[in-house]
Design a binder for these strands. Structure first.
Lengths: 156, 156
DNA sequence: CAAGATTGAAACCTCAATCTTC
DNA sequence: GAAGATTGAGGTTTCAATCTTG
């Protein structure tokens, strides 16, 4: 994950002056910089538990699924490619948080199953994440939240 | 760079319901998701020129400097560790965009110098980036920009 | 041949250790 | 010893190629 903002220079040297957008700085890089900073805060909080956003995302996906998921299903739910899940599960398995189990009906598939330690750490990590989220959120007034959220939607 | 949002699940499964923040979704992950989406758009645009945000950032840092910079100075300006610059310059040098030159006075230092091709591609890439930025920015009304920018500042 | 998973290679980032030079 | 740069290793992500099974 890109850490922090290396965008300060881009802001000052970009060619946007001609578009008559002075004063308000550059919203695009402000957005990216703010997101990186916030993401870094969440990662730091999870790192205290030996976790990362990527790992917790897989753990929470498994924890909230109604049945054991194949690696392909995990990839679909977290919106990434299969090979990413393969390596993520490699690390989670090395950490003793997840186990690979053969699919009973389709021998091509492999199902990821949380271990006891995995289920415990998922709860712990999610709690830490919620707390970190709330910390960030607390800095923004309630009235501003919906507004910002709407505008963020527009930018995508 | 994290591509797109694998945060849809985190939004629905987070434990923030208890904080009485329903309706407005989750601003924190909306922010991260929006930034990733926008960053992806910028990267895609630069990729058409064989560039990335990371590479262009180094190129533009060199282009706007008043004199040749050491690798350590580049690292300081783009806010990353030295070893990152070493590898970035490795790739830029392989692309023929940058040259390493020995420092005349301090034999420990190495200065990065733009080649002709590097100077040309920097201009090209910066123009493409400005255009991509403007495209994103155009979706947000002028009145909203300063407002969002202020709130983004709060969240960091 | 499609689909599921893995492997190999690459980009991007970080940290710790090392090597040269001051 | 401290500073500048590099190397080695690991994490996260992607793509293309491969291997097994359907």
């Amino acid at each position: 994950v890109l850490k922090y903002l290396y965008y300060s220079r881009m802001n000052q040297a970009d060619g946007l002056a001609e578009t008559a957008e002075h004063g308000a700085g550059n919203l695009v890089f402000s957005l990216i910089a703010a997101a990186h900073a916030v993401e870094g805060q969440l990662e730091d909080r999870l790192a205290e538990h030996g976790l990362s956003l990527a790992k917790l995302n897989v753990l929470s996906t498994l924890a909230t699924a109604s049945e054991a998921l194949t690696l392909g299903e995990v990839a679909a739910r977290i919106h990434c490619v299969r090979s990413n899940v393969t390596q993520l599960v490699d690390r989670l398995e090395a950490d003793g948080l997840v186990r690979r189990e053969p699919d009973p009906v389709d021998r091509r598939s492999i199902r990821a199953v949380l271990t006891e330690a995995g289920r415990r750490l998922q709860r712990e990590g999610q709690a830490a994440l919620d707390e970190a989220q709330a910390t960030v959120l607390a800095r923004v007034g309630g009235a501003d939240r919906a507004l910002v959220e709407r505008i963020l939607g527009l930018m995508q």
